[in-house]
């Protein structure tokens, strides 16, 4: 019970902190002081106090988009075990629901973007849909590898307990899987090298362009939803990359938080040392991620 409460509190409160840490890491790399680590929280508070402007051409789809996206992402967060703790919600086959809740979230974001009737946002929606199509096989190959290794179709047994032994028995395939999942993590969260969350150079934007017409509280909801998505997919990655268990509940929660902070610093480092890929190169990179995951599946099926 306490675990479930900590799970929900962490999922609700921690995501913007990750964005703050990524921003701070990038600032340190660039030799700047940077915004305070808590800046994303201030931004969210500011956006929630503002009023909203809605274009006359938009319908209810435009307003439903961010809300459904956040709801779907939060539901997905109940399915993922954080660290070595069981997820509050777990049943056989929940990995498919997990993957498609993000699909639903993406559908609503793109539908809201198309609802504005702006050709510019349509372009962003098309890009988002294309890259998501290519990232999905990589995610499913990875989940299939985990299902095979743990002999279960549910995320909680897949990610808790068995991963540490899998590192010893089939380290190569877990390593490939981790690489593939990291690429999926970056592309799903629109981070460099696939998309630059800070850019407003119109021709290269993917995610930012879709939310240009949103303002005020709804825009805050979008930003918060994106942070939660980063948190959930990051938890999936850290569960695999750093499987540890001391057995003491509180220490394990502490370790999980440290692992997430390390992941945020890692993403910040990747963003600082890499340039954004040309948009034609992105599908190549995603195909490579699919192949890594498929190869990993091949190794465990053998």
């Amino acid at each position: 019970m306490t675990d479930a409460v900590i799970h929900i509190l962490l999922t609700l409160l921690m995501p913007p902190l990750l964005l703050g840490i990524i921003g701070k890491t990038k600032a340190l790399f660039a030799g700047r002081v940077g915004a305070p680590i808590l800046q994303p929280y201030y931004d969210l508070a500011k956006l929630l106090r503002k009023g909203s402007v809605f274009s006359d051409t938009t319908t209810w789809v435009f307003q439903a988009g961010p809300v459904v996206t956040l709801a779907a992402t939060l539901t997905a967060s109940f399915l993922i075990p954080l660290g070595e703790h069981r997820a509050p919600l777990s049943f056989s086959g929940d990995m498919v629901l997990f993957a498609y809740l993000f699909g639903l979230a993406r559908f609503c974001t793109t539908a809201a973007a198309l609802d504005t009737g702006s050709s510019f946002e349509g372009m962003g929606a098309a890009r988002e849909a294309t890259f998501a199509c290519l990232a999905e096989p990589a995610l499913f190959f990875s989940l299939a590898v985990l299902a095979r290794l743990s002999g279960s179709l549910s995320l909680t047994p897949m990610l808790t307990g068995t991963v540490a032994t899998s590192w010893l028995n089939s380290g190569a395939s877990i390593l490939l899987l981790g690489g593939s999942l990291f690429i999926v993590l970056l592309v799903e969260n629109c981070r460099v090298p696939f998309d630059d969350p800070t850019t407003h150079l119109e021709l290269t934007m993917i995610h930012e362009v879709m939310v240009l017409d949103h303002s005020g509280p709804l825009f805050g909801v979008i930003l918060y939803g994106a942070a939660v998505k980063l948190f959930v997919l990051g938890a999936l990655f850290t569960d695999i990359a750093l499987p540890y268990a001391t057995g003491i509940t509180l220490v394990d929660w502490g370790l999980f938080i440290v692992a997430m902070l390390m992941l945020a610093i890692g993403i910040g480092v990747v963003e600082s040392v890499m340039a954004r890929l040309r948009i034609v190169k992105v599908p190549q990179m995603l195909a490579a991620a699919c192949i890594l995951a498929a190869f990993s599946l091949l190794l465990v099926l053998r």
Partner: peptide, 21 residues
């Protein structure tokens, strides 16, 4: 192209595993 050759390469690798068995 590079992406198609990569995919063909992946398929060939899978076939190699099947064949070796």
């Amino acid at each position: 192209g590079y992406v198609p050759t990569l995919l063909i390469g992946a398929v060939l690798t899978a076939l190699a595993f099947a064949f070796a068995a």
